[in-house]
Design a protein around this nucleic acid. Structure first.
Length: 256
DNA sequence: CTGCCTTTTCCTGGTT
DNA sequence: AAACCAGGAAAAGGCA
C-alpha cells in the first residue's frame, strides 16, 4: 500500500503508465480478481438503468469512483473538482473538456460514458467487444491497484470495501460537499488542511462504510494518527484539524 | 498457511 | 468534566 502511494507521489503518470500494455492485458481476460461474472453487479445495472443525462452531481462523482474501483483506474489521474457537475453537464462536455478533466484515464472513461449513453452498457466485457482502436490503449496504463473507493456508492461489490481506506474516505468526503453535510470542512484548501466539524457523525459514517456500528471518533482518530507515520497525514497542532501529507494524493484542486 | 498492512480495540496519561 | 490528542500493544481482517 505504502508502495503504491509512494509511486503515485513520486512518479509522473506517464512513468506509471506503460504505453505498451494492451487493452486486454489491463482490462481483459486475466483474472486479477475481476472475473467476468463480477461485472454483473448491482452497481453496473444502476449506472445503466438511469441515463447519464439524468445523473445528479453526486451520481457523476459516484460513477467516476465506481469506474476507478471496478476498472482499477488510478483516481490520481482524475481532477475531481472538474466533475462537480450533473449528468447533463457531463454529457454536454466535449471530448476535449472531458480529457482535460479526467487526465490520462480520460479516453477510457469517455469511451465508457459514450457506451452507456448510446448502448446502455458499461461492463468491461461489453466495452471490450466494442473497444476502439489500439491507439487508446495507452490510457489503460493508469490502471493500478489502490484506486479510490466509491463513497456512499450504491455498489455493494466486494471491491468497494476492499479498497476502502480511511484517508481516501475522508478525502472523498471533502471533495463532495453535497454528501459531506458539514461533517468535514477545508481550513486551507491549498495546503490540504481540513477540520473535522462533526466528529461523531464522521465516525458513524465511517462505521457505516465498514459495517461496524461500534466505530467511534476515538478509534477513528487513532487510525488517523497512524497516518502521520506514513506521510499520508501531517500533524496540525489544533483540535480536530488534520493536514494531508506528501504521500496523500487526489485531494489537490486542479491537479491531475 | 504465511506474512504484510491497515484498521480496530483498549488503554494510560496528558491537554484544552 | 467532557472531548481530544498521543501512542503503545495486541488483535482482527483483507490480501498476495
Amino acid at each position: 500500500m505504502l508502495d503504491s502511494v509512494t509511486h503515485s507521489t513520486f512518479l509522473s503518470n506517464t512513468m506509471v503508465c506503460d504505453p505498451l500494455m494492451s487493452w486486454t492485458e489491463l482490462f481483459g481476460t486475466t483474472e486479477d480478481g475481476y472475473p467476468t461474472c463480477d461485472h454483473q453487479t448491482d452497481s453496473d445495472s444502476f449506472w445503466t438503468s438511469i441515463h447519464p443525462e439524468y445523473w445528479s452531481k453526486h451520481n457523476v462523482c459516484e460513477w467516476l469512483q465506481f469506474c476507478c474501483d471496478q476498472y482499477k483506474l488510478d483516481a490520481n489521474c482524475i481532477s475531481f473538482s472538474h466533475f462537480n457537475i450533473n449528468g447533463l453537464q457531463l454529457c454536454n462536455m466535449t471530448q476535449e473538456e472531458f480529457l482535460d478533466a479526467a487526465g490520462i484515464c480520460g479516453e477510457y472513461l469517455y469511451f465508457i460514458l459514450q457506451n452507456i449513453r448510446t448502448h446502455g452498457i458499461s461492463f468491461f466485457t461489453d466495452v471490450e467487444e466494442t473497444k476502439p482502436t489500439n491507439k487508446d490503449s495507452r490510457d489503460k496504463a493508469c490502471v493500478r491497484a489502490g484506486g479510490i473507493n466509491g463513497q456512499e456508492c450504491h455498489s455493494h461489490g466486494r471491491t468497494n470495501l476492499q479498497s476502502s481506506h480511511l484517508w481516501e474516505f475522508v478525502r472523498d468526503l471533502l471533495l463532495s460537499p453535497e454528501e459531506n453535510g458539514g461533517i468535514l470542512e477545508w481550513e486551507d484548501r491549498g495546503q490540504g488542511i481540513f477540520r473535522v466539524v462533526k466528529s461523531e457523525a464522521l465516525a458513524k459514517m465511517w462505521g457505516q462504510r465498514k459495517k461496524n456500528d461500534r466505530m467511534t471518533y476515538e478509534k477513528l482518530s487513532r487510525a488517523l494518527r497512524y497516518y502521520y507515520k506514513t506521510g499520508i497525514l501531517e500533524r496540525v497542532d489544533r483540535r480536530l484539524v488534520y493536514k494531508f501529507g506528501k504521500n496523500a494524493h487526489g485531494w489537490q484542486e486542479n491537479k491531475i
